[in-house]
Design a protein around this nucleic acid. Sequence first.
DNA 1: GTCTATACTCCGATAGAC
DNA 2: GTCTATCGGAGTATAGAC
Lengths: 215, 215
Amino acid sequence: MPPEAGATHPAARFDRRAQRRQQTIAEILDLAQDVMATDGVTGLTISAVARRLGVQPPSIYKYFPSLMSVYDALFRRGQEEHLDAIRAAMSGPEPGLRSLAAGLEASGRWVVANPVLGQLLFWRPVPNFVPTPDAFAPSIAMVELFGTALSDAVAAGELGLEATTDDAMALLSVLAAGVMSQHMANEPETAFDEGRFTPLLPRVLDLFRLAYPPA
Amino acid sequence: MPPEAGATHPAARFDRRAQRRQQTIAEILDLAQDVMATDGVTGLTISAVARRLGVQPPSIYKYFPSLMSVYDALFRRGQEEHLDAIRAAMSGPEPGLRSLAAGLEASGRWVVANPVLGQLLFWRPVPNFVPTPDAFAPSIAMVELFGTALSDAVAAGELGLEATTDDAMALLSVLAAGVMSQHMANEPETAFDEGRFTPLLPRVLDLFRLAYPPA
DNA sequence: GTCTATACTCCGATAGAC
DNA sequence: GTCTATCGGAGTATAGAC
């Protein structure tokens, strides 16, 4: 133990411990993703994570109270990462259709880069797992982001008035989900720019534009 | 035992045994669907099926050599039912867009009526399960059905020439998969005519028409 | 074709020593 | 916060009696 250690303020030591703890939690979630990539989303087990971390299963319970809480943390982290990717992509272009297109592409690229999280977030394949409201919150923020982009597009005369309806949002989600579902189900290992489906993302946005033309 | 039993021809007795066996197999598959509806697609186990059938687990192995073979039989039966529903719906209307629309609607209605089979067929959520070519064959026949409908629509001047390309088929699959994926993930219990997503099926077909207008 | 018994592997979760 | 030990249960699949 280096001599400074004893001289450190208690608060600083507490911070370091908390930081170390957060690192371990992040590592557990990383390894959990590895397990899901190998054995499927529903193949995740506490034991498998412990093996990869090089500890015994009971140690995991010092960080997560149950297997479902690991799923919930993965769901939350996935939603947050997905939202961050979309927000960052949408903030650059001008508001409206260009921002919307950038957000859709960012979402698609994130899902292609994180296929197992994509399954967890969008397909809900785990029996008895219901995400907590906390973990689900970023998804609501994402819907609002796209809603704002649609409003901006209408205000800019790029889309018709009805593009702000619930129906339009449902159609937009259908178009995006269709591209990503076909990718995840049929060619999950293919890169974003190379598959049969992901290149259709700009095309389906064009179709959405055709569905809600400006007056 | 009734007196006729002993007098029956050996061939007839064999037929009856084979028939009885097929009934048991069908019953096992029905119960397997029940289990998946309750515990998720990946929650299917031989033991759970045995419990519902009122027998011990080893008895199931007289009908299926492994759990994966049960999945394969479910996959096959699902693909066949799905194909039959589509074929029946498409044969009535005149060839081309009307037949295509009828096929899409029939597919949607079948998926809504069979949500767990839909997940098994279209999402592939079971780790280590790869359908045999035999089980997959109806899916190829289905693609051909839709391909023929597209050709007919082009011949009838309802769609442009490029509607027969692989790209067009991919787009059509994306549009249909989007509607059904959003339904299965977000409102699997909702009826076909009542959800937010399934009513969009005719709308996305309109969009497809806009994407490939006749010359 | 049913059963019992069994071999084997794995799991989630807890108790308690260190 | 790590470990060992354990509880209690699940599962797939096989062997062999009836």
